[in-house]
Design a binder for these strands. Structure first.
Lengths: 348, 348
DNA sequence: TTGTACGCGTTATCAG
DNA sequence: CTGATAACGCGTACAA
């Protein structure tokens, strides 16, 4: 039946009554307050156990003005990077007795604003955010800041005062990838990436451009494809590439799913990888290791990012450190060279 | 600085004072109670807006004995199936003004028990669980049931009274897969699967066995590999297969990641797929489409499972239906035949 | 239509 | 070492 009623909860008053002591004594015993005798503590705990007592967390929250809940807002959950990041956060949070409450912005600014509002209503102790694809206006974070709720961005970050960013050096990672491709003899390199309002994509685009310039190759807008980096976008990009003349000899893609999809489609049309076109992706998604050839990528460890973000926020909340909340933390990322980009040197 | 203080929150008392009305009037106005004049309602809402009022959710929870929070406990977050399932739950929950709080059991029974305890402390309105790999003892769910908190399992379910299960027909799915392999001329079929204490794996094992028997092939324990279905397990299984004599001519694996890893390793050792060995996986993970050959699999749509689970729980919570909580919901799954198992018929 | 007063379960303060 | 009491912010019976 739908309307089975919940059992009424046991409170500290019930325990107090059963033991003929005061509620305060019970409260203190339960948290091992130093000024309570071991004997009383034991007695109370036993009774609590016996009666199936469970502390009421709202009442606690109400009194302490703290929830031990961390809010997490991400564009979408089901990418390898994001689910790993969340896994990392959950791990650290759990270890520190924090809970995690999750919301997706579905890559849209309006849902993101709604999620922020919801998180504030939940009175989360802190907020972790990775921005939606098209968020331009950042005013929905104003209340968070004004209100004094610590705010940390990761991956797709905002440049706000009073918030911390956790990122990798996207510029350098892209620079290294593209330089590697050039080293392999590639000179006409397509770059597939996302909305350049997002730091991650603008950073990579800049790295791409600078690597070209530093190697005396010219930069052309025509070789830069901006899309959503989804599976279908990789296919469409492949179509475009097949029709280009002269044909590019390398593709540097901002994520592995799109890179793999693009590569597969090229191969289905007779292109040999890496001989005709070399491929490099981004993220070190497991998928990059299972395709043939395996694709060169940038190791961007979501689990670790998540752990660092969560630990940082918690340190801040616990006042364990004196690090300002206005800060940027840059994690390492590493170029992983695999077969998709390795070929015998050619004369240019 | 770490100790920047949060702004004190605006309460209904503050609004009441500013407007010179009583707190109850404010409370009622805010929720459009019918017995309040439109004028007052407008006045109050404006003032609330102006003062940046935000209802205190603990106080509400404390009064209403309800949190609008759904607890979700899963073995791990970072598999495609799980993150999709959670994405689906989040979507439905959000639409119905529920929040989702997530915890991982990391595939161990003890963490699972801890998570359950944590969820009860949070006073979640309902609990969604997919069991850890090795959970045998189910007593940590007793309190949940006694307490009257609705409990729904999905994928890896428990056979408890007073809880709902959302599953697919694992037996039938496996039966169909294996029958297909047999149709393709395979007769010596290895099955790689997980702990058969879990319904999903025992169901698939039974389907595998029955398909063999129904096609007059013998069942042998030697062809069944039980492991954790991770990437490395696929490799190890491949090693074993390479050393078997006579060599199997097909492998039916209980998940795609393991299937792909096994196939790749076989290929690296000169086995041709599907000619020498046919492969079938499970889940329709994106990875199954990107490898070569693409692998035959069972479409098991995590997003949809998540949506159904969450919707069901919410219906129950809202009393919108009269469906008993003791129930099993079986969703469709579909065999997807791809190149990894398709070969010209051979004489047996 | 609005106001009063109390309780939800805890914890902190102050007194003994 | 222990007890009484007052909040925390909101909702709701009951009164007016």
């Amino acid at each position: 039946m739908a309307n089975q009623s919940k059992k009424p909860d046991v409170t500290i008053y019930d325990i107090a009554e059963a033991l003929e002591v005061s509620p305060s004594t019970v409260s203190r015993s339960l948290k091992e307050h130093p000024s309570i005798s071991k004997k009383t503590i034991r007695k109370v705990r036993n009774q609590a156990e016996k009666m199936g007592y469970r502390s009421n967390i709202f009442a606690q929250n109400l009194r302490r003005q703290k929830t031990n809940i961390i809010g997490v807002i991400v564009p979408r959950l089901n990418s390898h990077f994001m689910s790993s990041a969340i896994s990392g956060m959950e791990r650290v949070a759990n270890k520190n007795h924090y809970k995690i409450i999750i919301s997706q912005s579905h890559e849209t600014a309006s849902d993101e604003a709604g999620s922020v509002e919801m998180m504030l209503e939940q009175r989360v102790d802190g907020l972790i955010v990775s921005l939606a694809y098209n968020t331009e206006d950042m005013t929905h974070f104003d209340t968070v800041i004004e209100q004094g709720t610590p705010l940390i961005f990761f991956d797709r970050v905002a440049e706000l005062t009073n918030s911390t960013n956790v990122v990798i050096d996207n510029y350098q990672a892209a620079y290294d990838s593209v330089s590697h491709l050039i080293d392999q003899g590639c000179s006409r390199i397509v770059h597939i990436t996302g909305n350049t309002s997002r730091n991650v994509y603008s950073g990579r685009l800049n790295g791409y451009r600078q690597a070209l310039l530093d190697h005396e190759l010219s930069f052309s807008e025509d070789l830069v494809f901006i899309n959503d980096l989804q599976e279908r976008d990789g296919q469409e990009a492949a179509e475009k590439i097949l029709q280009m003349d002269p044909r590019p000899d390398a593709v540097f893609v901002s994520n592995d799913v799109c890179a793999v999809s693009c590569m597969t489609h090229l191969q289905e049309n007779g292109i040999r990888v890496p001989r005709d076109i070399a491929i490099a992706g981004f993220n070190n998604d497991p998928i990059s290791r299972f395709v043939k050839p395996k694709i060169t990528t940038v190791d961007y460890d979501g689990q670790r990012v998540g752990e660092v973000v969560a630990q940082n926020l918690i340190n801040h909340l616990e006042g364990d450190d004196h690090i300002s909340i206005t800060n940027t933390i840059v994690l390492n990322s590493e170029l992983i060279i695999r077969a998709s980009s390795q070929r015998s040197k050619q004369t240019k």
